[in-house]
Structures are given as structure tokens and as C-alpha cells.
Simulated assay, not measured.
Amino acid sequence: MELARTVAIYGSTGSIGTQALDVIRSERHRLQPTVLVASDSVELLASQAMEFKPDAVGIVNSKKARELRSLVDSSIEIAVGDEIFDLVDRAEVVLNGVVGFAGLRVTLAAVSKHRVLALANKESLIAAGEIVNLALSESTAQILPVDSEHSAIFQCLEGRNWVPAETRLILTASGGPFLSSTSDELDNANLEMALNHPTWSMGPKITVDSSTLVNKGLEVIEAHFLFDVDYSAIEVVIHPQSIVHSMVEFSDGSTIAQLSKPDMRLAISRALLYPDRAQAPYGAMGWPTETKLEFFRPDLRNFPALGLAIDAGILGGGAPCWFNAANEVVVSHFLLGEFSWRTISNLLGISMERYDGSKPTSIEEVYYLDESARRVTEAVVRGFV
């Protein structure tokens, strides 16, 4: 009997992590979580450890270490702070479900240890795509995308002979909660409205990013680095039904798409079990179906942040890193209710005007640029608030 594949889940208490554990519950004979890591959600992490009995658990917040130790079995090893990155050695597959720039170190640790990296943390490639790809070229590691759009593209390309320079990628976007909103209505959009996503269940930060379409702009940058396709050949289309998760158009005009009902467990299971597939029918359409499929061009006047993100990707160098950091800062303040939804894109535009044009060539320079962008953007926000 084949042994279960071992999995380390970074961000196990977040949206991606909890859904990954749901997948594992259905695949216990094929998947075994040997490492669970969280930022500071001690009680949920301890509950997960009690259920799945990993070899080790990790907690980023060192102040929570003693509490965690009191809640988990003494046989389970505990890693604290930077020790968590050493735990990538304990699994064959590393799922990076960490939210934001903080996930970059997990990505680099997994690549350096030649692990299969199930990547849900798009910010790793946005902030340091060239550096991560260089590290990949010197490693036997493999990146399997977990974002539904990039998982869809991966599945459309899988097993096919294709040339990046002759291929177009079409990323779909639901349009978020404000798809049908008028300009006047968007002037009055607030936090509660932004968090009311019509089709996906996600964490608050990514839900806000979806409402501004920043998330889609970041996904364009991620797709560029994942599939080596030029920005001019990556397009975003609005697809309110969230059934077609992305498409690939080949040189002969053929378009191949991946369709399923919106369920992140499908993309997660694809990465954790690759090249096999899950036994549970996540996202099954239940054919025949009367589902209507609609596609529109995004409205960049009402959603200017999408254009700002794509422009940062095209500019290259440190611009994507700066934009990502600025967005994390601005969204963190928006989640505190400090300003209206419209203000997000306004503040991002001001911050990008202050990008210094630097091009990081090392991971240390990436961290320095990220810190600089956050400091500048905090000042921009303070000046507004």
C-alpha cells in the first residue's frame, strides 16, 4: 500500500489552510499533514493538532508559544518565530497559504529545500518573481498554483505542447460585490459592502482586493511569472458566474477553459494530490445545467486599481513589490473603517507616484523596498486620514 503524501500547511488556520484540511479529511489515506503553522490563532491551531496529530506545529507569535504548549500533546514538537521555516524539511509538499508579503519566506524556504510548493500566496511572485524564478532554476522544487485562476491555466496547459510567445492567457474575474454599481453608488461604497462577495468565501483582505479588482491585477503579475507569458498576452475578463476560472488561447485560435462551480477545495486538492485528482467532486457542475455564462471587459474608470496593478507589472523592477506593499497598507486601514472604498485606489495611485524606480537584485533588497513602500504609504494614509 502506497504511503500517504506528507504535507506542511503554512497558514493552517486561515481560509486556504482550513479548506486544505477539509480536503485532507476526505483523503486521509493519501495525504497526511505533518506540519501545521499559524500566525497567532492558538486555540484553532491546537484543535487542528488534536485532530490531525502532526509531527510539529509552528506559531509565528512567540508570545503565544507557552499557551500553545499547554494545549497540544507533549509528543508534538513546537517551533516558534523563525524556527517555523525549518519545518519545510518535514513534508514532501509545502502549502503556502500565508496571507500577504509574509509568505515570501515560506516560498523561498520550500524552494531552497527542493520541495513541491503548493502556492496560494501570490505575493511571493509579485514582490520577488524574478528572484523566486532564479531560485527555482537552481532547485528541483516545483510550484503548483493554488489560486483558482492559475490552477485553471495549469490544467488547460497540462500535457500540451505550447509556446509562451504564441499563447494568450485569459483570467476571469467575478467582478466582486460592485460589478453592477454605478459611479455614484461606488462613491458611497463602504467596508461592509466590500466584504459581501457574491460567489467566493475568502478572508477579509483578499475579499477587499476582489472588490477593487486589485486581486486580478496581482494575478496578472503572478501569471506572468508562473507561465512566462508576456503581459501583452494576458487579459482580464469579467465573468460574474465564476464558473469559467480561466482560459488559454493557442496559436491556432483554439480556446481551452476550465469550468467548475466556485470551490477553492478543487484547486487546493489539485495541487496537493498532483498528478492525481481528488475523489470528492469539488465544484461538480451537475451537467446538464442551464447556467448562463457571461463575459465583459473590466471598467477601468470605476476600478482604476486594476490598471495600477497591471501597470506596475509592466513597469517591472521593484514596481510590483512597491504596489503590493502599498496595497497591504491601504487595505489594512480600510479594514479598520478609516475611509471609503473609493479612497483605496486614490491612495494607491499617490503611493505609486512615489515609487523610487529601484530594481532589487537580492532578497535583502526586496525586503528593504517593501519596508520603504510601507513607510511611504503609511505617511500617505496619515496625510489623508
Rank of each mutant, 00 (worst) to 15 (best):
Leu3Thr: 15
Ala4Arg: 11
Ala8Glu: 01
Tyr10Gly: 12
Ile16Leu: 14
Gly17His: 10
Gln19His: 03
Gln19Gly: 00
Ala20Leu: 15
Arg28Asn: 07
Arg28Tyr: 06
Arg28Trp: 09
Ala38Asn: 05
Ala38Arg: 04
Glu43Trp: 03
Glu43Lys: 07
Ala49Pro: 01
Glu51Tyr: 06
Glu51His: 09
Glu51Val: 13
Glu51Gln: 15
Lys53Ile: 06
Gly58Arg: 06
Asn61Ile: 07
Asn61Trp: 10
Asn61Leu: 11
Ala65Val: 13
Arg69Leu: 14
Val72Phe: 04
Val72Leu: 04
Asp73Thr: 01
Asp73Trp: 01
Ser75Lys: 13
Ser75Asp: 13
Glu77Asn: 05
Val80Glu: 11
Asp86Asn: 12
Leu87Pro: 06
Ala91Arg: 05
Glu92Gly: 08
Val93Pro: 08
Gly100Arg: 04
Val111Ile: 15
Ser112Arg: 15
Lys113Gln: 10
Leu117Gln: 08
Ala118Lys: 10
Asn121Pro: 00
Lys122Cys: 02
Glu123Tyr: 02
Ala127Pro: 06
Val132Met: 10
Asn133Leu: 14
Leu136Trp: 13
Glu138Arg: 15
Ala141Ser: 11
Ile143Cys: 11
Leu144Gly: 01
Leu144Gln: 01
Leu144Trp: 05
Leu144Arg: 10
Ala152Asp: 01
Cys156Glu: 09
Glu158Met: 08
Glu158Cys: 04
Trp162Asp: 09
Pro164Cys: 12
Ala165Leu: 15
Arg168Gln: 14
Ile170Phe: 13
Thr172Pro: 09
Ser174Tyr: 05
Ser174Cys: 13
Gly176Asp: 01
Leu179Tyr: 09
Leu179Met: 14
Thr182Ile: 06
Thr182Met: 07
Glu185His: 06
Asn196Phe: 02
Asn196Val: 01
Asn196Tyr: 01
Lys205Gln: 13
Ile206Gln: 05
Ile206Pro: 03
Gly217Trp: 02
Phe225Ala: 08
Phe225Cys: 08
Leu226Trp: 09
Tyr231Ser: 10
Ser232Met: 09
Glu235Gly: 07
Glu235Ile: 12
Ser242Gly: 11
Val244Tyr: 04
Met247His: 10
Phe250Tyr: 06
Ser251Thr: 09
Ser254Asp: 10
Ile256Trp: 04
Ala257Ile: 04
Ala257Tyr: 00
Leu259Pro: 00
Ser260Tyr: 02
Asp263Asn: 02
Met264Ser: 00
Leu266Pro: 00
Ala267Lys: 00
Ser269Gln: 00
Tyr274Ile: 02
Pro275Ala: 00
Arg277Gln: 08
Ala278Gly: 10
Ala278His: 05
Gln279Cys: 07
Ala284Thr: 11
Trp287Leu: 15
Thr291Trp: 13
Phe295Thr: 11
Gly307Glu: 14
Gly317Gln: 05
Pro320Asn: 04
Ala326Glu: 05
Asn327Gly: 12
Asn327Gln: 12
Leu336Lys: 15
Glu338Met: 01
Ser345Cys: 04
Ser351Ile: 06
Tyr355Met: 03
Ser358Tyr: 13
Ser358Lys: 13
Glu365His: 01
Tyr367His: 13
Leu369Glu: 13
Glu371Pro: 04
Arg374Gly: 06
Ala379His: 14
Val380Phe: 07
Phe384Trp: 15
